[in-house]
């Protein structure tokens, strides 16, 4: 029976676990996007609202400024909706 199972026993490697280190970076969700949010930094008041509401961890706060990671942004446009000064515009993907 073991012969048919073309595997060797891998000890702990054979256990369905993985390190928690945000390795989802292999899983790029940018292709889901229909609209691309774009921050107009000249109007941005750095209130951190978009950062608070982004559901997908696609907005990071770097040096006191929001930065959209377009590898992961799924284009839900919640950031554009919640921005109190409406400084986040959108652009159709593929144009």
């Amino acid at each position: 029976m073991t012969k048919d199972l073309k595997q060797k026993y891998d000890f702990e490697k054979g256990i369905p676990i993985m390190p928690a280190n945000a390795s989802a970076k292999y899983n790029k969700t940018s292709s889901w996007r229909l609209w691309k949010p774009i921050i107009d930094h000249s109007k941005c008041i750095k209130c951190k609202t978009c950062f608070a509401y982004c559901p997908h961890g696609a907005i990071s706060w770097i040096n006191g400024k929001p930065k959209i990671d377009y590898t992961f942004c799924k284009g839900c446009l919640i950031c554009a909706e919640v921005c109190p000064v409406k400084c986040i515009g959108k652009e159709k993907e593929g144009n």
């Binding site: 945000a22 989802a24 970076k25 899983n27 559901p55 961890g57 284009g75």
Partner: peptide, 17 residues
């Protein structure tokens, strides 16, 4: 962020937020 990008949740998911 302790929950980073690249999940399989729907766009605009409140659960993930």
């Amino acid at each position: 962020n302790l929950l980073e990008g690249g999940s399989f949740s729907c766009a605009g998911c409140g659960g993930e937020l």
